[in-house]
């Protein structure tokens, strides 16, 4: 544990609470996420996992119902104190539960973030598109039809497209929200391999409904339940049964959720 604290903190969360109108989605959350780790978040539906991700990339700016209180630092600065919240989001890649291929060409889907960042010139964009699609294990399947609509790919392909898109942002933090929900098992495995590679370059926040997925990928894992953090620990240790809270043990063993 002592070693861990010397690592750079990408996220520092202190007493964070999130509510939508009168409904509380998360309260009293405190945790840190370190550079180059895969941080898994598990928990049943409505436990506040997605709300937490939305708070990190400041989706509350677009949702007048959503309220975030407490301290949430990204790269050492409060997310709410970023002067340009769009620049903040450019540092954070997001992959949604249901794949969202934007209704533009596959090429434009992947080149979009690069263009936002100010990358100019066809050669530079071509390079970004090929690199990101290759990393997301999609290049071979789509390289001959980059002009066709991203929203008309199959579910599994669209999900890899959204990963390629998130990678094209060259993010500091990659957040995946139950990415495998609409993806077949083979694709899921391929994406998981990609994530293990990506860990060397970025920090990954992996929200998952599959306990085994967290076990396979995450360095540390947190359990959320009904809008609060139950337990946080090294994944290996948790799955070996070294849990502080009985509910964690129950959840990991599949007794609820």
């Amino acid at each position: 544990m002592v070693a861990a604290e010397t690592r750079t903190k990408v996220l520092e969360v202190n007493d964070l609470s999130i509510s939508y109108g009168p409904k509380t989605a998360m309260s009293g959350l405190s945790l840190d996420v370190y550079e180059n780790e895969i941080f898994g978040i598990i928990g049943p539906a409505n436990s506040g996992k997605t709300s937490f991700l939305r708070a990190i990339n400041r989706m509350d700016a677009f949702d007048s119902q959503m309220n975030v209180n407490g301290s949430l630092r990204f790269m050492g600065t409060e997310v709410s104190a970023w002067r340009n919240d769009y620049a903040l989001r450019r540092q954070i890649g997001v992959v949604f539960p249901l794949p969202v291929g934007l209704p533009m060409s596959i090429y434009d889907n992947v080149a979009f973030a690069a263009k936002l960042r100010g990358v100019k010139g066809k050669a530079a964009l071509d390079e970004v598109v090929e690199r990101c699609l290759t990393r997301a294990a999609l290049w071979d399947e789509v390289k001959d039809r980059l002009d066709s609509l991203g929203s008309q790919l199959s579910g599994g392909q669209q999900q890899r497209l959204t990963i390629a898109r998130a990678l094209s942002q060259e993010p500091t933090l990659l957040m995946l929200d139950e990415f495998s929900i609409a993806v077949d098992p083979v694709t899921t495995m391929r994406i998981e391999d990609v994530l293990k590679e990506l860990k060397k370059e970025m920090t990954i926040l992996l929200v998952t409904n599959l306990v085994q997925q967290a076990e396979r990928l995450a360095d540390r894992t947190a359990l959320f339940l009904n809008g609060s953090l139950i337990e946080i620990g090294y994944t290996d240790a948790l799955f070996e049964g070294q849990t502080q809270d009985q509910r964690t043990k129950d959840y990991l063993e599949g007794r609820f959720g």
Binding site: F62, L102, F112, R165
Partner: peptide, 21 residues
Amino acid sequence: QAFREACWSMGASRWQTIFTV
């Protein structure tokens, strides 16, 4: 709405989202 959220999450501004998507 999912198109907008996907676009926002990539760091596009509101106007860039409206204009491109």
